[in-house]
């Protein structure tokens, strides 16, 4: 029996909801171990962990009945994702279809299994204006349509997390009152090879976030004890790690050529968060070939091509989901091209 399964069985499932974000496996990497984190959900909707819902379920006699249930909020689902170390690939995720009557978003993520491999997952969410009108009426549909990008992007992300972690759409009161035990893969620090790999990653990340080595006068302060400065003795980031050492994370932010190298466009037009192009979707669905929202080069309007400052790019991307200069933003706002 695999360690993972044994661990899951040791957790009394009458008392906890076990969330195992990995597939069943007989093997566990000698460089990894499994740890359990407990997450609690407050069943009172006031606290923002759950939504109260009523849903129709079929009964044994062939009929059906309304039952009350609790659905985890988007914020709580995100907390589960973080606890399980589920990584969202934001470069490959986003709106992939955008027409006047339909939008669709894809979310790509990865979760590490006990062998150390990262399982790539993909989920989509689409919103169709005509269907929306049929289900909620013209007025409410128009209101929702204003937030179509947010709805499909959040929807895709929630679908991905729920699928990856096996979270249910709705829980009964008794279920939601039980704590959730989330099993997560974590590095085994007593393995020298693993320590070395982690140090290498840390040095690369530290260099990106905190800058490279500095002049001696401004380096880490003098100390009466030994100091391990992650910037000291920069490692060659291009060196491959041992193939046996599991990657600490899916290669987020480590573009081909190692950290710091310019990212190359992936097969799907993204910036190459996963170095070997867009990952194969778990559900067998081919990634859409539709252009990504952030296809325009940073610093240029995607409509007229004029150079724009980073702050305008950020605002425009947030507001209009693509980089637009101020003039084109005004046109867009006034109902111009989309």
């Amino acid at each position: 029996m695999g360690e993972q399964t044994a661990l899951a069985l040791r957790l009394d499932q009458d008392k906890v909801n076990v969330v195992v974000p990995t597939l069943y496996t007989e093997d566990i990497s000698p460089f990894l171990r499994l740890v359990v984190q407990e997450l609690r959900v407050n069943p009172d909707p006031v606290y923002g962990d759950v939504h109260y819902i009523e849903r129709y379920v079929k009964t044994e006699g062939g009929g059906g009945k309304q039952v009350a249930g609790f659905m985890l909020t988007a914020a709580k689902v995100s907390q589960f994702a973080a606890a399980a170390n589920l990584q969202i690939n934001y470069r490959e995720s986003g709106v992939v279809e955008d027409t006047p009557t339909r939008v669709k978003a894809v979310c790509v993520g990865a979760v590490q299994d006990a062998t150390g491999d990262w399982r790539i997952l993909q989920a989509t969410k689409a919103l169709d204006l005509e269907q929306l009108v049929k289900s909620v009426g013209e007025k409410q549909a128009q209101q929702k349509w204003l937030f179509r990008y947010e709805i499909v992007e959040t929807g895709a992300r929630l679908r991905l997390v729920r699928a990856a972690l096996g979270l249910k759409t709705a829980y009964s009161h008794d279920e939601i009152a039980k704590p959730f035990a989330i099993v997560r893969v974590t590095p085994r620090l007593d393995a020298p090879e693993m320590r070395e790999a982690m140090l290498r990653r840390a040095a690369a990340s530290s260099s990106e976030v905190f800058g490279g080595p500095r002049p001696a006068a401004l380096a880490a302060p003098a100390s009466r004890g030994p100091v391990v400065d992650l910037d000291a003795g920069q490692v060659d980031n291009g060196l491959p790690e041992s193939p046996d050492i599991p990657a600490g994370r899916p290669p987020i932010g480590d573009p081909p050529g190692g950290p710091g190298a310019a990212p190359e466009p992936s097969a799907s037009g993204g910036a190459g968060l996963f170095p070997n192009g867009s990952p194969a979707p778990a559900n067998g669905q081919a990634p859409s070939g539709a252009p990504r929202r952030a296809a325009a080069p940073a610093g240029h309007c995607s409509n007229c091509g004029v150079a724009i400052p980073a702050a305008v790019v950020e605002f425009s991307t947030r507001r209009f989901h693509r980089a637009l200069c101020r003039e084109c933003q005004a046109e867009q706002k006034a109902g111009g091209d989309s």
């Binding site: 990584q87 969202i88 934001y90 470069r91 590095p187 620090l189 693993m194 320590r195 070395e196 982690m198 140090l199 990653r201 840390a202 040095a203 690369a204 990340s205 530290s206 990106e208 976030v209 905190f210 391990v228 992650l230 600490g248 994370r249 987020i252 932010g253 910036a271 952030a294 080069p297 940073a298 610093g299 980073a310 790019v313 950020e314 991307t317 947030r318 980089a323």
Partner: peptide, 26 residues
Amino acid sequence: KDLSPVALNAELAARLGNVIGGLAAS
């Protein structure tokens, strides 16, 4: 530069996680 604030935060968090992992390994 082309990343949304949310994506950028995720990138930064991932790197901080790596740095903390390195500190733990040390």
